[in-house]
Amino acid sequence: MTTTAVRTKPTVAVWKFASCDGCQLNLLNAEDELLEVADTVNIAYFPEATRTMLPGPYDVSLVEGSITTPEEIERIKMVREQSGVLITIGACATHGGIQALRNYADVEEYTRYVYAHPEYIETLETSTPISEHVKVDFELRGCPVDKYQLVEVIAAFAQGRRPRIPTYSVCVECKRAGNICVPVVSGEPCLGPVTQAGCGAICPSFNRGCYACFGPQDSQNCHGMADRLAALGMTNDEMVRAYRTFNATCEPFHAESMRHERARKAGAEEVEA
């Protein structure tokens, strides 16, 4: 005997804020799973993929991008009001993204360089994560997010369970994959030890060091990592950039980058302990 629970398919909306669209594209890139995703959930609002736009509220909202304009501050509140569950996807949405480099610079100066008529540009001085503005139910890391993790998160919320997203280091995935440790074998810096897994250790799999695009792992030791990066020849300047590239607003990366920036400005050879 079988019993079949009657389920209505949950509605899903996909939203874009300040971002490159790469994370949304990774949902479309999940070619083998896409039909099954469409069978599992009702994609109600996804301008990147379809002109059909059903009105809210939505059971699940996937939010890509960071908050960089006054208009976006208002729009994310509207998204939150219309969403049962709000999931941020990608480094922009979870930690400000590459555009959060503006947080350490003069935005007015940037706009003067980039735009012929900067007077038309209305922008904030910072790029901030969605979670600084509204309540976020789950954050999926990465630049871009991993398509298998994205499908897993959609499946988990559709099935009413917790997503199976590990928070340990990239090294776990690297060793499970049988990769040879890049910094040990070549001396090339690798941020894998402080970075959360999820990408499948894609850069080390191609003999490149990890760039930390998934943000900090749950037991990061950014200070100890910096000591090792210095031992491999990284300068304070390079260290600042390494910790700021994708996830500058997350506290451990931010704090470590500031430590090296202070050292750089002081012209000190040694950073403070």
Partner: peptide, 8 residues
């Protein structure tokens, strides 16, 4: 202080 808890 040195251990990165990386699991290697």
């Amino acid at each position: 202080a040195r251990c990165l808890a990386c699991t290697n």
